[in-house]
């Protein structure tokens, strides 16, 4: 059910309208799905519309194998002005929507929208935020969390994605939706993938299956078929100290040679930087360690000292070190 939850007048035209979709039994535990906090995070919006289509068909009975047992609430588009302008931030105030939580119902547009999201999701049991990488980067599909307690780990396991990255705590986190949901005891995860202003259908499909699996595992969605899955995806949990950033030592045009979501060997070439005037190769970017390539520079123009890639490294178990285990 599509429902208008907030109307905000605009100075010169039609009002801004915030909508939420709701499916399932309101008496049961609810899952909140939020995308479009930044106007250029289109991947999450696409994922949300895929889920809307699927849940509509489940409720209508087009998927006879599925029954919706819990409740799902989705906000596909939050930062309405930014999305209308095709920009990350709302141009009128330049405020970062994800630094405006918990918001203020009497405040300006961004604050009022943030407040509406909190109000309409406060009673949810789980919360998933669907986002893309920061500007200029691409993310492999992965889960981000602010904490890694047992409940969050269970949530991550049920999402069946291989990569779970715990974020470094930062003062700015306190005004994000993820942090505010945690303050409401909502089990929260951020699903990040792709790059701003683009939609990667393959990555969306990965995350779509991940969320469907999560809903089945948590009993939100019942699948009458007794299908045994062959895949046994176990997540790797990466604490902040396992992040390895690879930096540019020169400025110019970065030409990548690898893809996100792939394992990287120590010494492997990540790409190169070329001078904008002469075309000369200024630097070859080499992986300082082995790891999983989580984030890669997408926009080629780079400044000196900018991070070009993030590798997630795993501590080796003693089994990998002992010679007779090899």
């Amino acid at each position: 059910m599509k429902e208008k939850v907030l109307t905000l007048p605009t100075p010169f035209g039609a009002p801004l309208e915030l909508y939420k979709n709701t499916w399932g039994n309101p008496n049961n535990e609810a899952l909140a799905l939020v995308s479009g906090l930044h106007g250029d995070h289109l991947q999450g919006i696409h994922l949300n519309l895929q889920l809307a289509q699927f849940l509509d068909s489940v409720v209508e009975g087009s998927h006879p194998d599925y029954t919706l047992k819990g409740q799902v609430i989705s906000f596909p588009v939050v930062n309405l002005n930014a999305i209308q302008c095709g920009s990350r931030l709302a141009p009128a105030d330049g405020m970062d929507m994800n630094l405006a939580f918990p918001g203020n119902p009497q405040g300006e547009t961004t604050e009022a929208l943030a407040s509406a999201i909190i109000t309409h999701t406060a009673e949810c049991y789980w919360g998933l935020i669907l986002q893309s990488a920061p500007p200029h980067y691409e993310d492999a599909p992965h889960i981000q969390t602010l904490q890694l307690d047992s409940s969050t780990k269970k949530l991550c396991r049920n999402l069946k994605l291989e990569t779970v990255r715990q974020l470094k705590p930062s003062p700015a986190h306190k005004v994000t939706l993820a942090y505010q949901w945690q303050q409401h005891d909502i089990l929260t995860a951020i699903l990040s993938s792709g790059s701003p202003r683009t939609v990667n259908i393959q990555q969306c499909e990965t995350l779509f299956q991940s969320i469907i699996h999560f809903m089945k595992a948590e009993g939100i969605l019942k699948d009458r078929r007794k299908i045994k899955t062959n895949t046994t995806t176990k997540p790797h949990f990466y604490p902040p100290e396992n992040d390895v950033s690879i930096f540019a030592n020169t400025a110019g045009m970065f030409l990548k040679e690898v893809k996100v979501g792939t394992p990287i060997e120590k010494g492997q070439t990540i790409g190169e930087i070329r001078d904008l005037y002469s075309g000369k190769r200024l630097e070859e970017i080499i992986a300082p360690t082995e790891g999983f390539l989580l984030t890669l520079r997408q926009y080629p123009i780079v400044y000196e000292k900018e991070p070009l890639a993030t590798l997630l490294t795993a501590k080796k178990s003693w089994r990998n070190i002992l010679p007779w285990s090899k």
Partner: peptide, 26 residues
């Protein structure tokens, strides 16, 4: 512009000890 234009980042929202790596936080 208020923000560092290349990164669309408000520098005065990046202070603190535990930020992730970016040129703005550096």
């Amino acid at each position: 512009t208020r923000l560092w234009p290349f990164f669309s980042v408000d520098i005065n929202r990046t202070f603190g000890e535990n930020n992730t790596h970016s040129l703005a936080t550096d």
